[in-house]
Design a protein around this nucleic acid. Structure first.
Lengths: 216, 216
DNA sequence: CGGCTACTTGAACAGAGTCAACTATGGTGG
DNA sequence: CCACCATAGTTGACTCTGTTCAAGTAGCCG
């Protein structure tokens, strides 16, 4: 799989990695740093679709439809592993493991977007905020970015607002309310989760016990 | 690819094809009919994630994570092409075309979910309704279900409401308002689109002319 | 005819948006 | 070292969009 790699790309925070409506000759894997995927509307509104953390794939859409349907922007300095897009499908023939991995990543992305859609479509303000904070904390933990229940969140309240579909002002007020529950501390870029279970409950998660019963 | 097939499944309208939280030994392709993918919350709320039309793949998530993250339900009588899930990855080795097709379908699903997320997160009522109606009309047309700009929509206003994240009542009132624009007629299950461009404008689409300028 | 489901409509209420001002905080240059 | 500026975060007052509750109507099938 390393043979497929054509180089590394290092970018500063704020750099645009891929642009909606354009295509790209490259497919990227995020090696380090955070990025954000979003779509912008003419009237200045913006919807964040997802965050990208180390290990995530960027630019698959362009490989398939010749056009990106969202923009990807670096939230921190990032290191990207660069793959030549045109080689992808020939690689599918020689490396089935790669085909599996990419399918897996695409399906995972679909799952996350589905969760976000439920959150934005059905949840109340506090649930939305709690859900996204918890989700990002857990993803950060999966890739080893959490130490002592602390992690650096390199995004602003405005990013959060654009993720959950609320105005910045209302997001801020909801956050104030959530802080009073005491399950987490978020000051500047430092986020500390002190009561994961409680935040999960506030996010409206089904309780971890009592899973779903299979159909007979 | 036909060799992979293990049978056909015929189900009535209302049948549940896959259940959130369970896994399934099968992967399906929808051969005919409509289905709906949704997630339900404890409190009775429901979010429709997407509609499935002929040609769509159902159950990929279960093949990858051993658990479906949403439920799939038939809206009409459906015919499904059944594949044994465990054979999928071995098939990836012998049929790279299949690997490409599945990746393509997964990426397309991601694109649609992204569009829905923008709609639900940022758009106003009339735009949301217009967007979904137009989107479904266009997808139906792609698979040849539209004749004379007419198509059968086998879903209720409640399905639409659960798709766009509004209450049934407000969806109904918005629909009433949209009908006055005269771009479409929707009575019972019969939908006729008489002014596609106008509906596109109401949906808040970027005008077809004036595409996005590539980055130099 | 009765009972179901889908669809309509109005009135009162509440959640979220908008506007506008203000407080940190960090970086820059005089 | 401090004055200035830009960006991020906070807060209050008012408005408006969408929700809820409640009461219908229309069509369909037994």
């Amino acid at each position: 799989m390393q043979s497929f790699k054509s180089g590394e790309l290092v970018l500063d925070a704020g750099a645009t990695i891929l642009v909606e409506g354009t295509n790209s000759p490259h497919l990227y894997t995020l090696l380090s740093g955070w990025a954000i995927k979003h779509k912008s509307l003419e009237d200045g509104l913006r919807q964040v679709l997802n965050f990208a953390l180390p290990g995530d794939l960027l630019g698959l859409q362009a490989s398939i439809s010749d056009t990106m349907h969202h923009t990807v922007e670096a939230l921190t300095g990032v290191v990207l592993c660069v793959f030549p897009r045109e080689k992808l499908w020939t690689l599918y023939e020689s490396h089935q493991g790669l085909a599996f991995d990419i399918t897996w990543l695409a399906a995972r992305e679909e799952t996350i977007l589905g969760d976000y859609l439920v959150t934005v479509g059905q949840r109340r303000a506090t649930e939305r905020v709690a859900f996204v904070l918890l989700h990002l904390f857990q993803r950060a933990r999966q890739v080893g970015l959490v130490r002592n229940n602390k992690v650096t969140f390199p995004f602003t309240q405005e990013h959060l607002a654009d993720t959950i579909g609320f105005s910045l002002v209302h997001t801020n007020k909801t956050l104030k309310q959530l802080r009073r529950t005491g399950c987490f501390k978020w000051v500047g870029t430092n986020f500390e989760l002190t009561d994961e279970q409680k935040l999960g409950a506030l996010a409206g998660e089904p309780s971890p016990i009592g899973g779903v019963r299979p159909l007979v």
